[in-house]
Amino acid sequence: MLTVAHELAEITRLVEDDDFGTTLDRFVSRIADTVPGCDHAILTVRSDGAVETVAGAAGLDFDPIAPGPVVEAVTFGEPRRLDDVATDQRWPAFAAQVGNAGFRTCVALPLSIKGEDSAVLTLFSHKPDQFADTAYDVVLLLTLHAGVVFDNATLYHDSSQMVVQLRTALRTRSLVGRAQGMLMRHFEYSTDDAFATLKRASQNSNTKLRDLAAALVSAHEKGEFDTALQKLALTAAGEKAPD
């Protein structure tokens, strides 16, 4: 348990403030490297009714958000565990996909985050019955409902900071995604063009990416989206902020 906490605490020291993509990738990578029996980990978010795996999906030979434990966990906020794809047939199609990809077991663990969005960390193993004990420890660590297990106050603080940063990263991911969608609809941008526009506007206005995205989302909700676009020199379809 303490080994896992020490490893996760390092994330806080290694990630830049706005690099939420790296934060999430590093988070799931460190989990996979540290949790006993874990061969792969993913992070899945539910925002505005849409479910998306935001980290760890690269290289998987199946769709992690097919109907199954991951979607149920992120929808209902409850842990789900598939002990052995060969014997547990509650989600037969999902189990078949996971088994064909070489995994035998998985556990989906809801994370405690603020707001209406929800997030789930899912661990996979090539061996069956790997997470019966580990799952409980990881839930305690990541949701911070049992901070008393940490004897070292500094370690607890670092772990708490890691979770705060993860929450910030997830919130940033959601805001940026919503702002991207608004630009895509308004200007008929591609996903890449919309993100590049946000990054450029962030740099030109000397505003953090998450703050800029939050301002656009807020302006849209207030009916002031066009005004906000004008302030960023985005006034016509295809027109981008000046370099």
Score class of each variant (00 low, 15 high):
Gly102Thr: 09
Ser112Arg: 15
Ala86Tyr: 06
Asp88Ile: 06
Val98Phe: 09
Leu82Met: 15
Phe94Tyr: 15
Leu82Lys: 04
Ala95Asp: 00
Pro110His: 13
Ala93Gly: 11
Pro92Arg: 11
Ala101Trp: 06
Leu109Cys: 05
Ala101Cys: 01
Arg90Ala: 14
Ala108Glu: 07
Leu82Pro: 08
Ala95Gly: 00
Ile113Tyr: 09
Thr105Arg: 03
Asp83Cys: 06
Asn100Cys: 05
Ala96Leu: 15
Asp88Thr: 06
Arg81Phe: 09
Asp84Tyr: 09
Pro110Arg: 02
Pro110Met: 01
Pro92Phe: 08
Pro92Glu: 09
Pro92Gly: 13
Trp91Phe: 09
Leu82Cys: 04
Ala101Lys: 00
Thr87Met: 12
Asp84Gln: 05
Ala95Thr: 09
Asp83Glu: 13
Gly99Asp: 01
Arg90Trp: 13
Ser112Gly: 08
Arg90Asn: 14
Ala108Gln: 04
Pro110Phe: 07
Arg104Pro: 07
Thr87Phe: 09
Ser112Asp: 13
Gln89Thr: 14
Gly99Tyr: 04
Ile113Asn: 05
Leu111Lys: 06
Asn100Ser: 12
Gln89Lys: 09
Thr105Val: 00
Asp88Cys: 10
Leu109Ala: 08
Gly102Phe: 07
Ala93Asp: 14
Ile113Trp: 10
Ala86Gln: 14
Pro92Tyr: 12
Pro92Cys: 08
Ala86Pro: 10
Gln97Glu: 07
Phe103Val: 00
Val107Ser: 04
Ala86Cys: 10
Ala108Lys: 00
Phe103Gln: 06
Asp88Trp: 14
Ala96Phe: 13
Phe103Ala: 04
Arg90His: 12
Leu109Pro: 00
Leu82Arg: 02
Val107Ile: 15
Asp84Glu: 10
Thr87Gln: 08
Asp88Asn: 12
